[in-house]
Design a binder for these strands. Structure first.
Lengths: 190, 190
DNA sequence: CTGAGTGATGGGACTTTGTCTCATCACTGT
DNA sequence: ACAGTGATGAGACAAAGTCCCATCACTCAG
């Protein structure tokens, strides 16, 4: 038996999502979250730097996966192919478990301006990470940023399609599909 | 003579920028900002919903200008031409006065995670506004979002070039130039 | 001239977020 | 045993942000 109940971090996340769903983000205090998780405010802030981060902390791994996917793509790959590889790479984190959790989570984020703001920051970070990874492959500046932006769009929209109840396909497939659509739209812009 | 010293809002912004430059965003309290502006904390929060907004409040007008520029573009304009028109439209707000103010402001924002986060949110809002305006012109979904994203990129990078000390050209010209570069990169992606 | 609005500001109490420091307490290895 | 170790608890504290009421100069009807 462990010294303390295990998975304190996960318990905090679940408590937060539940409480945010029930009474809204603004009407929920950190003390309430901690209490429902059987912990205290001190411990909450030991696991998360602030109240918003309790919902977006899990997304940190995406950065690494996306960067790796781009870095390990074959040298012959075009920028967009490297981005597609990044989407494949990040798909490994898209377990069915996460898919079940996603609808409630996105609903909570959509309802709170503060959480949406944090989300915008995370999105920008993902774009930066991908653009940097592309530039290290030798992709020149405007192209790298643009391809990264397409990648983030494919990631976001792919995620939305992936969590739709009717969807049965894996994330990688859906995201690649969106990326192809975006590419087609990009070449047909002018 | 007025009842109170005029331009309370602008005084607060200037005090905030100065203090943030001198001692950093985190080390500056709202009370300090208010005091330097000859006001109180109460009045500060009457003008700005929170501490971050004191620096990004001025950007609200951009949304309207961008949306108008797209809405009033000729029917024959392609999505990217409409975006270019939006950049022309927003250029009317880029007075030399704002250009002089910009370097210090961007430095302050760059130095503070909180301000960068707010900036990411504003950027996302601009993209949404442009995408919505394009869709109301009949531009279909992935294309509208993509063109809006190019528009925001052109806006951001155009702004960076515009405020460079060596630059003498007006904002509209610089932003259009960036947009052309992005368009070229977009069509050369695959 | 007067007195009832009006509207921006001041003041202060209050809740919540986030930081910091010290105490606790169960387990681990020597 | 017994001194670490590491996650947690407890509580003081500063600052952000909310709320409500007072003030005070000016305006305008009468």
């Amino acid at each position: 038996m462990a010294r303390w109940e295990p998975d304190a971090r996960e318990r905090l996340v679940r408590a937060a999502v539940d409480l945010f769903s029930e009474q809204g983000y603004d009407n929920t205090t950190v003390v309430q979250i901690a209490e429902r998780a059987g912990l205290t405010k001190s411990t909450f802030f030991r696991h998360f730097p602030d109240k918003r981060e309790v919902l977006s902390a899990g997304q940190e791994i995406f950065s690494g996966l996306l960067a790796d996917g781009i870095a390990t793509a074959p040298d012959s790959a075009t920028p967009l192919e490297a981005v597609a590889a990044a989407l494949d790479s990040v798909a490994t984190a898209m377990a069915p478990q996460r898919r079940d959790f996603a609808p409630k989570l996105t609903a909570v984020v959509a309802a709170s301006p503060e959480l949406r703001e944090r989300n915008a920051l995370k999105r920008a970070r993902l774009a930066e990470v991908m653009a940097d990874a592309l530039q290290q492959r030798g992709v020149p500046d405007p192209t790298a940023t643009l391809a990264a932006e397409l990648g983030v769009l494919a990631f976001d929209r792919g995620f939305d399609r992936w969590i739709e109840p009717a969807n049965q396909r894996p994330f990688a497939e859906v995201a690649r599909e969106v990326l192809v659509e975006l590419h087609a739209a990009a070449t047909a812009l002018g």
